[in-house]
């Protein structure tokens, strides 16, 4: 599951052939499993950083599902991204507990600090910003995740510092 949950840790892009080879591997494993579509999408995103049109069309062909249906699944879950993302994916939880404990203010601080809106990526391709719907750490609310790291009881005023640590490479260099 660790592999599934990891997001966009890769910043360098794979060659077309390498992408195709790795995708084939994933599809080989999941195409015949009932309910295999979502794990295949998760792993593909973790390998390639995002789900490109080419990748999605190959997945839809392999699973013998219409492209519109696969797109419906991808667009339903906020976890999936169809645009390239930054080295670090910052997700602010807006689940109920985080919401009532100031998750929205944390999100605003992140937006301001990064200068981007939800779903966008900074120009230096370092950070992408997304909203999460509960990471299962409600007792620690408000929570944000940066790639696989969970940060608890985040204060809007401390968000800048936290991001700087990642930018400086002091934290969470998953590679």
């Amino acid at each position: 599951m660790a592999e599934n949950a990891a997001c966009c840790a890769c910043s360098e892009s794979l060659s077309e052939e390498e992408t195709a080879r790795q995708l084939e591997e994933i599809l080989e494993e999941y195409r015949d499993k009932p309910g295999g579509l979502i794990p295949a999408l998760q792993i593909a995103q973790s390998r390639f950083g995002y789900l490109s049109e080419t990748v999605l069309k190959k997945i839809s062909a392999a699973f013998n599902k219409p492209y519109s249906e696969v797109a419906g699944v991808v667009s339903f879950y906020s976890f999936f991204s169809t645009v390239p993302r930054g080295k670090y994916l910052v997700r602010a939880c807006l689940g109920t507990a985080c919401y009532v404990r100031g998750g929205k203010a944390v999100l605003s601080a992140l937006k301001k600090e990064l200068g981007i809106d939800v779903g966008q990526t900074t120009e230096d391709r370092l950070f992408s910003l997304d909203v999460g719907r509960c990471f299962g750490a409600c007792g620690l609310a408000p929570v944000i995740m940066v790639n696989d790291d969970v940060h608890q009881r985040v204060k809007p005023s401390k968000v800048g510092e936290l991001l700087k640590a990642y930018a400086a490479g002091e934290k969470g260099d998953a590679q």
Partner: peptide
């Protein structure tokens, strides 16, 4: 055919 599906949430 499957051209139409719910998109988004």
């Amino acid at each position: 055919v499957g051209a139409l599906h719910p998109q988004g949430r």
